Amino acid sequence: MRKDIKVPEVKNVTLAITREVNTHNEAEWNVHLINRNNHDIENTLVASTGYGELNGEHQKTSTLRHFLETVPARGTALIEPINAEIFHLNNEFWVSYYIDGKIYDKKFIFLPDTIKEENLIYIKELDMEGVLHS
C-alpha cells in the first residue's frame, strides 16, 4: 500500500529567486537551485508553474520543465528566469533528483507577493541578493 512506501526526506536542497540589475538598470529575476549537501545530486527535474487569482479572475501560467544532469556538492544551478509580472501568483517548483539510486522530491511554493525588494537577503552560495525558500 501507499503507506508502506518510504519516501526519503529532502535535506539541504532549496531554491532561491534572485534579483540582478542589468546594464539598462532594470531588475532581472532568476530561479536557482542550491545544493548544500556534501554530495552531488543527479538527474534533477524541475517543473515550474504559477497559479492564483487577480481581481477575482483565475490565472495560471504554462508549466515549464528543466533537466539538470548533475548539481555538484555545495553547488548551485540556474533553473530559469522569472518574470516579475507573475509574483502575485503562487510560484510552484516541483524538484525531483537522485542520490545513490534513491529518488527524492519536494514541492517549493513561493506564496503571492513574497518575492519583493523588502524580502531580499544576501545568499552566500550565489553571492547575490534574493528570496530564499525556507
Rank of each mutant, 00 (worst) to 15 (best):
residue 88 H to G: 11
residue 79 I to F: 02
residue 114 T to M: 07
residue 2 R to N: 15
residue 51 Y to H: 13
residue 13 V to Y: 06
residue 44 T to M: 09
residue 33 L to Q: 07
residue 72 P to F: 06
residue 122 Y to S: 04
residue 121 I to Y: 01
residue 9 E to V: 11
residue 112 P to Y: 11
residue 85 E to Y: 01
residue 38 N to Y: 09
residue 75 G to W: 01
residue 117 E to A: 06
residue 106 K to R: 09
residue 69 E to L: 04
residue 115 I to Y: 00
residue 67 F to V: 12
residue 86 I to M: 15
residue 23 T to N: 08
residue 117 E to N: 12
residue 34 I to Y: 03
residue 28 E to K: 13
residue 106 K to L: 05
residue 66 H to F: 15
residue 118 E to K: 07
residue 70 T to D: 07
residue 31 V to Y: 08
residue 111 L to R: 02
residue 69 E to F: 01
residue 7 V to D: 06
residue 101 G to H: 04
residue 128 M to F: 06
residue 53 E to H: 05
residue 60 K to E: 14
residue 132 L to M: 12
residue 101 G to T: 09
residue 64 L to D: 10
residue 82 I to N: 01
residue 29 W to C: 00
residue 4 D to S: 15
residue 34 I to N: 01
residue 21 V to T: 13
residue 77 A to W: 02
residue 68 L to D: 09
residue 126 L to D: 13
residue 56 G to K: 05
residue 87 F to K: 00
residue 129 E to Y: 12
residue 28 E to N: 14
residue 101 G to S: 07
residue 81 P to R: 03
residue 61 T to I: 04
residue 96 S to I: 07
residue 8 P to W: 06
residue 119 N to A: 12
residue 97 Y to A: 03
residue 100 D to Y: 01
residue 85 E to N: 11
residue 50 G to Y: 08
residue 59 Q to Y: 04
residue 77 A to P: 04
residue 68 L to I: 15
residue 21 V to W: 06
residue 52 G to P: 10
residue 51 Y to D: 11
residue 128 M to Q: 15
residue 17 I to H: 01
residue 21 V to F: 06
residue 87 F to H: 04
residue 118 E to D: 02
residue 123 I to W: 06
residue 80 E to C: 07
residue 81 P to E: 14
residue 98 Y to V: 02
residue 106 K to Q: 13
residue 26 E to C: 03
residue 61 T to N: 02
residue 104 Y to L: 05
residue 63 T to Q: 14
residue 57 E to L: 13
residue 73 A to D: 07
residue 114 T to N: 09
residue 17 I to S: 01
residue 134 S to M: 06
residue 34 I to V: 13
residue 40 D to K: 08
residue 119 N to V: 08
residue 106 K to A: 06
residue 101 G to K: 03
residue 9 E to Y: 12
residue 27 A to V: 11
residue 88 H to F: 15
residue 27 A to T: 08
residue 19 R to H: 07
residue 27 A to I: 10
residue 58 H to L: 14
residue 30 N to D: 11
residue 20 E to W: 03
residue 49 T to R: 15
residue 29 W to I: 00
residue 103 I to F: 12
residue 93 F to G: 05
residue 51 Y to T: 11
residue 108 F to R: 12
residue 55 N to Y: 05
residue 9 E to R: 08
residue 130 G to K: 02
residue 93 F to R: 05
residue 17 I to L: 11
residue 44 T to C: 14
residue 38 N to C: 03
residue 114 T to E: 10
residue 35 N to F: 10
residue 25 N to F: 08
residue 116 K to L: 03
residue 48 S to P: 01
